[in-house]
Amino acid sequence: MKSLGLIWRYLRHNLMSAMAYRGAFVLQVFGMLLNDLMLLVFWTLLFQRFPLLNGWDLTGVVTIYAVSASGFGLVVAVFGNLTRVAHVIASGDLDYYLALPANPLWHLLSSRTNLSGWGDLLFGVLLYVIVVPGGWQTLPLYVLLVILVALIFCAVGVLAGSLAFWLGQAQDLAAQWFNATLSFSLYPVDFFPGVVRVLLYTLLPAALVGSVPARALLQFRWQNLGLMVVFTLGAMALAQWVFFRGLRRYESGNMIVTRG
C-alpha cells in the first residue's frame, strides 16, 4: 500500500511537471497517437487483399493493437524509468533510490513519466471504444487485461534491465529484449512457426501482451484469462526476485549529485 501511494504521488507530480511545458506534452501525445494510427494503414491494405489470415482478420489485429498499446502506454506513462533500468544501474544512479525509505524498485520505476506513453494509451483506448466489438459490457474485462499487459511489460523491463547487475553495460541488450517483446506483440502469434511460438509465450512473452488478451476480449474464455493472471503473477514475482538478488551485487558509483 505504501508503494501504491508513492506511485500515485509520483504520477501526479510527473503530470504536473509535464503540464509546465503544455505545448511539448500535447505535441508528444498527439504525435504518438498519429504515429500509431499510421501503423494500421499497413494492416488495412493487407487485409483488403487477404481478409482472413490464419484465423485473424482486421478487427482481430486492431484488437491486438488496442490492448497492447494501452498496456504499453500505461506502463511507460506510470513507470517512465522502465526502459532506463539498465542505464540507472550501470551509471550508479541507483544510489539515490537506495538512500530513501521506499521500495527502491517501485521508486526507481515511477520517478519519471514517458510523455509519448500517454499517446499510446490514448490510441489504445480510442481503438477499444471505436473498433473493438462487444460494447461497454467488455469494459471491466478490457481494463483488467490492460493492467495485466502493463504488468507483463513491467516484468520484462525489470528483468531485462536487471541484467546490468551482472553484465555492467547491458543497456543495448535490455533495450533489444524489451523492444523485441513489443515488436512481436503487434503480430498475431499464429503467424509464427512452432519454435518461435514457444519463445513468444516464455522469454519474449509477446503473445501474452498481444494475441492472448486480444482473443480473450473477442471470444472470452476463462482459460485465456487464467493463463494471463498466472503468467503475470509469476513474471512479476520473478522480476522482483531477480532485481533484489541483483541488488546484492550492486556497487555504488560514489557519485555526488544534487537533486531538486
Binding site: Y21, G23, A24, L27, Q28, F30, G31, M32, L34, N35, M38, L39, V41, F42, L45, L46, S116
Partner: peptide
C-alpha cells in the same frame, strides 16, 4: 521553432512505413 521535434520525426517515419512502401 519547436520545443520537441520527435513527433515530426515519428510522422515522417510512418510516412516511410506506409506511402514510402517500407512494409508493402
Amino acid at each position: 521553432w519547436m520545443e520537441e521535434t520527435q513527433p515530426v520525426f515519428w510522422i515522417y517515419q510512418k510516412l516511410l512505413f506506409t506511402v514510402g512502401g517500407l512494409f508493402l
